[in-house]
Computed example of a mutant assay.
Amino acid sequence: MGRSSSRDPGKVTITEVAKHAGVSLATVSRALNGVRTVDPALVERVRASADALGYQANPLARSLVSGRTQTIAVVVPDLGNPTFQAVLRGLSRAAAAESYHVLIADSAEQVAAERELAGATRRRTDGLILCAPRMPEDELLALLPQVAPAVLVNRAAATAAPAVAADYGTALGALLDHLHGLGHRRFAYISGLARSASNAARLDAIAAFRRAHPDTAVAELPSGVDFDSGAAAADAVLATDATAVLAFNDLVAMGLLSALTERGVRVPEDLSITGFDDIPFAPYTHPPLTTAAVPSVELGERAWAAMSGLLAGGPVPESVLLTPQITVRGSTGPVRPETLNQGARQGP
Rank of each mutant, 00 (worst) to 15 (best):
G2N: 14
R3I: 09
S4E: 12
S6M: 13
R7D: 05
P9G: 02
V17R: 07
A18I: 07
H20Q: 13
G22W: 04
R36M: 06
R45P: 04
V46F: 02
R47A: 10
A50R: 04
L53C: 05
G54K: 10
A61R: 08
Q70S: 15
V75A: 03
P77T: 03
Q85C: 05
L91T: 06
R93D: 10
H101Q: 14
I129A: 06
L141C: 00
L143F: 10
L143K: 11
P145W: 02
Q146N: 05
V151C: 05
R155S: 04
A157N: 10
A161P: 12
A161F: 03
A161D: 05
G169Y: 11
A171E: 11
L175T: 12
H178Q: 13
G183P: 06
R185F: 06
Y189R: 14
L193K: 11
A194Q: 15
S196D: 15
N199F: 01
A200C: 00
I206M: 12
A208N: 01
R210A: 08
R211H: 09
H213W: 03
H213Y: 08
A217E: 14
E220C: 14
D226T: 09
D228L: 13
A232G: 07
V237D: 07
T240E: 04
T243Q: 04
A247M: 12
N249G: 10
D250R: 09
V252N: 09
M254H: 01
S258R: 15
L260D: 13
T261H: 13
V267F: 11
P268W: 02
E269T: 14
D270Y: 01
L271G: 00
L289V: 04
V294Q: 07
E301A: 13
E301I: 06
A303M: 08
W304H: 07
A305R: 08
G314V: 07
P315T: 03
P315Y: 08
L321W: 06
T323V: 09
P324D: 03
G330Y: 07
S331E: 05
T332G: 00
G333L: 07
P337K: 12
P337D: 15
T339K: 06
N341F: 14
A344S: 11
R345D: 01
R345G: 04
R345H: 05
